[in-house]
Simulated scan of single mutants.
Amino acid sequence: MKAIFYIGHHKVGSTSLQKFFSENSHALLKSGILYPAVESHGLAHMTRNALAGKDTQTDLPINLREPHNALAFRMLSQLEGVTVPPYHKELPATPQMKFALRNQIAELEPHTVILCSEVMSNFGVLAPDMIDQLMRMFDTSDLDLYCTLRRPDDYLASWHGQRLKFNHKMRPLRGAATANYFEGIHFDYEKMLRPWVEKCPHATLHIRSYSDVVASGGSVEDFVAQVPVTFPKKLKTTASANPSIPRALMEFARIGNHNLSPEDAHFLRQFLIRAGSSMDIPPNGEVELFGAENRALMMDAFAPIHAYLSQITGKDAFFADIADMANVRPVSEREANEQGLRQILMALQHITIPDNIRAFFETFEFSDEYQLPETHI
């Protein structure tokens, strides 16, 4: 039996990949590929599909769509100070999840098992022994590890936006917040990957650059093309599943997270995602969030990490465009925000939104400091 583990990273199309596997789980299983459930709802859904003889649902609940994130969070919750996020509800204990995995493998006898979890990217730093636990669950020497990595400046900008969506209260990337990431897995990809590589010495590695993944058509297309498994034809396709706040509007979400109630801040973030898709604002790649000094710091700090990535993948340069990380984007964050605010104020003349959100925009003032203290790095 072959096991394939997608181990990250975040913000590289993992949600679309999980949606693809979950919404095609019955078709995949009929061809011998198991995307296993980890709790009773997922097992009941598999039974429903088996009775119907087809995949019966799209837009599945998160425990069904992202079962292996649920598994990874439950495993990590054994650590002091780590809890399962509230959106993964009613999960069984870790041993029951492990039994569910083993029993599905024993009874269904798949030739391939796929686990897909960006949360597992935390194992190497927080608890490397959890990699060993995972290996013991599957008892196979035929293992592939798949991981997609974005160039750090592009990734940190997207991760910053993802954290804003979860109502984190942060400093802006143009300040000290950038350097605060340097010691963690969201910048130090070697720290994330090395424990997996060392604990799985016989695994086939698929370490992919996000730009190559995009060029191949997306996360689903690249995964299917890279791993040595024949997938059935005519599977359901998926669209982008994790919309982001445009970078030209992120500062409004950041300040809103500080100054608004959780309910109003949530409404604001959803408004920015929806409105941003139709606004005439600079595209993400043209907005400068870091500044020249932080870009220089990133180049220096990432050099040894990039050397490691290049070495384990056998490439002269893992990120072929790594030098571009030093280049300041053409539109300043302040300029992009001002463009966005002008258009939002015009739109407010024609739409109905909560009074607190309207007042937030109508009284918004830019300052030289242009930042608020953060409560989370």
Score class of each variant (00 low, 15 high):
residue 211 S to W: 06
residue 199 K to G: 00
residue 201 P to I: 00
residue 306 H to M: 08
residue 38 V to A: 05
residue 102 R to S: 10
residue 340 G to P: 09
residue 42 G to W: 08
residue 90 E to Q: 15
residue 152 P to Y: 05
residue 194 R to G: 00
residue 360 F to P: 11
residue 298 M to H: 06
residue 98 K to P: 02
residue 175 G to Y: 11
residue 91 L to P: 10
residue 242 N to G: 06
residue 202 H to L: 10
residue 76 L to G: 09
residue 212 D to M: 09
residue 119 V to N: 03
residue 44 A to Q: 15
residue 201 P to N: 06
residue 155 Y to M: 13
residue 318 F to Y: 03
residue 119 V to M: 04
residue 345 L to F: 01
residue 85 P to V: 04
residue 169 K to L: 14
residue 125 V to M: 09
residue 263 E to A: 15
residue 316 D to Q: 12
residue 271 F to M: 14
residue 244 S to Q: 12
residue 161 G to S: 13
residue 254 R to S: 01
residue 215 A to F: 04
residue 271 F to G: 10
residue 55 D to F: 02
residue 68 H to E: 01
residue 346 M to I: 15
residue 146 Y to E: 04
residue 332 S to N: 05
residue 139 D to M: 04
residue 144 D to C: 11
residue 207 I to F: 05
residue 365 E to T: 15
residue 174 R to S: 12
residue 34 L to C: 05
residue 41 H to T: 15
residue 283 P to A: 08
residue 93 A to R: 13
residue 18 Q to V: 02
residue 171 R to N: 14
residue 20 F to E: 02
residue 67 P to W: 03
residue 277 S to D: 11
residue 243 P to I: 02
residue 151 R to Q: 14
residue 161 G to T: 10
residue 90 E to P: 09
residue 185 I to Y: 07
residue 41 H to L: 15
residue 39 E to S: 09
residue 202 H to N: 15
residue 1 M to A: 09
residue 193 L to I: 05
residue 94 T to D: 07
residue 67 P to K: 04
residue 88 H to M: 14
residue 109 E to K: 15
residue 71 L to E: 03
residue 50 A to E: 14
residue 94 T to A: 11
residue 249 L to T: 06
residue 219 S to H: 08
residue 345 L to Q: 12
residue 67 P to G: 06
residue 268 L to V: 05
residue 251 E to M: 11
residue 322 I to C: 07
residue 66 E to T: 03
residue 147 C to K: 04
residue 296 A to N: 14
residue 214 V to I: 12
residue 110 P to W: 00
residue 64 L to C: 12
residue 359 A to T: 15
residue 174 R to V: 07
residue 84 V to S: 03
residue 280 D to L: 05
residue 39 E to N: 10
residue 314 G to Y: 04
residue 7 I to E: 08
residue 163 R to H: 13
residue 32 G to Y: 00
residue 65 R to V: 01
